[in-house]
Nucleic acid binder design. Sequence first.
RNA 1: GGGCACGUAUGUCAAUGGUAGACGGCUUCCCUUACAAGGAAGAGGUUGGGGGUUCGAGUCCCUCCGCGCCCACCA
Length: 896
Amino acid sequence: MIDIPKTYDPKEAEASHYARWEERGYFAPEINQDPEAPVYSIVIPPPNVTGSLHMGHALQHTMMDVLTRHKRMLGYRTLWLPGMDHAGISTQLMVTRELKKEGLTRHDLGRAKFVERVWKWKEEYGGQILNQIRREGASVDWSRFKFTMDEDLSSAVREVFVRLYQEGLIYRGNRIVNWCPNDQTVLSDLEVQRDPYKGKLYYLRYPFKNRAGAIVVATTRPETMLGDTAVAVNPNDERYRAVIGETLILPIVNREIPVVADEFVESEFGTGAVKVTPAHDPNDYEMGIRHGLEQVHVIDRFARMTEEAGADFAGLDRYKARELVIEKLEALEALEKTVDYEFSISKCERCKTVIEPLISTQWFCRMEPLRDLALAALRRNSKPQFVPQVPYEKVYVDWLENLRDWTISRQLWWGHQIPAWYTTGGEVIVARSREEAEAKAGTNELTQDEDVLDTWFSSALWPFSTLGWPDETADLKTFYPTSVLVTARDIIFLWVSRMMMMGLKFIGEEAFHDVYVTGTVLDKHGQRMSKTKANGIDPLEVFDKYGVDATRLALAQIGSTDTRWNEKQVESYRNFANKIWNAARFCLMNAEGAASISEPFAAGSANLPLHDRWILSRLNRTAAAVNKQLDTYDFHAAVQELYHFFWDDFCDWYIELSKTSVTAEEASAERDAARARLISILEQALRLLHPFMPYLTEELWQKLPVNHARLQHSAYAGAEPSIMLASFPRGEASLIDERAEAEMQAVIDLISRVRNIRSEMNIKQSDRIQLMIAAKSDLKTVFSDSTDQIARLTRAREISIDGSSEMPKAAARAVLAGGAEVAVPLEGLIDFEQERARLTREKEKLEKESLKLATQLGNADFVQRAPAEKVEELRARVTDIAQRNAALEQMLEALS
RNA sequence: GGGCACGUAUGUCAAUGGUAGACGGCUUCCCUUACAAGGAAGAGGUUGGGGGUUCGAGUCCCUCCGCGCCCACCA
């Protein structure tokens, strides 16, 4: 007898298999020996080097792994490429904080030493997430692991930069940008978040120079008035039409500023007149350009007032300056009023500091031509295919259509330094290397641009830079375009769209065929999990508590809907894992002799017992469904399908139905064959489950007395057997047997009805009952062939079957589909009242349904307009109900 | 301000316009030698409210209520 614990302990399986898979190279595409094999590839969204695994990762990785393992088992040449992102700002902040503890700033170290220090930090503390990814069971090819700052990827970054620059798509310009006064860098629009803010609206009075009166303007940032160079009104605003072109005297500063007319101004807001500060507000900047206004810089990079703001203000923090401005305006009687006002405020996504719009010289990427490539790919080739298509395709298109230039430079030290050099004369040389720049410039007196590129710039190249571009590598040719990108929805703009554009630009093909957008795991109150709210669930703790496989199942079934985290759900999949374990345990306890049968189902399905034909049909139906569901990213349905097949069909029915033959005391050819069939079904079920539950399935599969090598997919012939290289069952249409399923269903219904009688009539578990079955010829045969099993599962001691419906009076009875009946004689034990009540309840149910059907069929419109099939279906149901109803009535009569 | 989702059993979620389901929880019975992390049998729903289209609506349309998400240059 085999010695297997009663309870599945996931830890053991998790500890051993991953390392073996990895060592043997099972994750690498090279394991596939078939030169004709179709290709499947995914690049992982590279986690930040500073990151650690959160639920979102676990969710995405599970789905990518399911897809990858599924395709690998189908014989695809499969690559899931792992990597990590250098995460410019986050990482630099991390190390800066570390330095601060030593009383140092990065400037104390200088650039070179600081960057060295970051590399050291990365080696020591970075990338803890990589081992967490291993724990998940992710079948990524570690031999192709990439880091965005690796030399080859950095060179791809420079290549792209140079080419885009040469085409005029990258340029250096002086424009208004989002500046973070804390991080001391510019940010792109996507790295700025808008938060609601309860502030005030200040009404300032600016007097005319050459006439009486004043214009009152409303502002939320009075301190910027020091930099005002105009007041704007709407040209159609009657109130102000007469004063357009007049001159105002700016209070405090006493600068003369004009009144200009601009369509941008909303007459309804405030006073209908707006102060214009071109140097410190994006809208005013645009207006300033339209009207040729002067830009007066009154706030610096530290959000302090400049000399230009005036001696009283220079050096003051922007909020201190605000107070002082208000004070002075009050003294000048230039503050009309102050009202409470709620608006939104821009903050740095990382450090939450309020953004200061500043005019500054930065590098930008022109997006229109790239955007057009992406839009064309979608319109002409429907690439990428978003899943779900609604709403993400529209979101993607809308964003692309309104795309503005991308600010790609950052004032950081950690990242890809911009490959631009300046001669002493100020000439700009953009080149792939210093050597190339020197050659171009004809001098070695060059200074490289201090800035680095936005982290997302290298991320945008990820699908091809990781495969060796710009070299025409075999990997690039084989694996690009990638098959699918699996991601959460928050980086569709930041990342997905940019990869698409860059891929189309530089390779000429889309970066991925499909984009699968996962749902979000929320906390139990429906809130997003976040560090600041501290409401996150650590996936590693869940792994420890319930096992990786159970967690994966719980995550996979989330699919693309947002779902509140529910630990009970994981617990139920843990129970499922245990169920699988115990089913296998049963099979292994009764495995002796099974191995001698090499083709358990070879005899030809017609000769097999009903339950064998039935389970074979169910198995293949399930396999076909799961393949289809995985091909269409319907993870939820696939999980449900597998769960119910395994638990309901296989465990609850098949094992129970096979028990008599499988557990027979004496060895026999028949017993061995039954055992071999049982094991074969289990074995195939494990293969179906493997993409979702890699550890448990491998653990059990290895224990099964089967010819493992023969089960491998032919593409992996010769490899040491593993379930991850076994052939994924495709679901043979020829093995789907409608008749067997219908007949088995009749048996299942019969057993269920008898069990119902036992339960409702309070028949003790230990009491053996007698069954009398009346059925017409075809069903009669089915039941007769299954009497042993029916007896076993209903705990009956005696079963008689005939074609008539002569039933004893003192019996509990039930009517089955197809006109069959079953009676349980209760020899004086029967409680007539109780049985009558039970039958009446049943009759009421039928009548309710019957009434519904009659109403529908009585509707002439329905009969006329609904498809004939539908009408037929209803009529058939009416007949069946009538039949059952008549039988019930008879039974009730017999009881009275 | 604009756009997009969602609201189904006590909880978490499913359901090509055609008999509203699953898992958990709940009730009753059972430690039947694969599994009590289990088995058997049950109870539980006017699909947020109202209106419309249709032979037929959880599903399509309108509206209201509720909870979210994304985008945005009304100072």
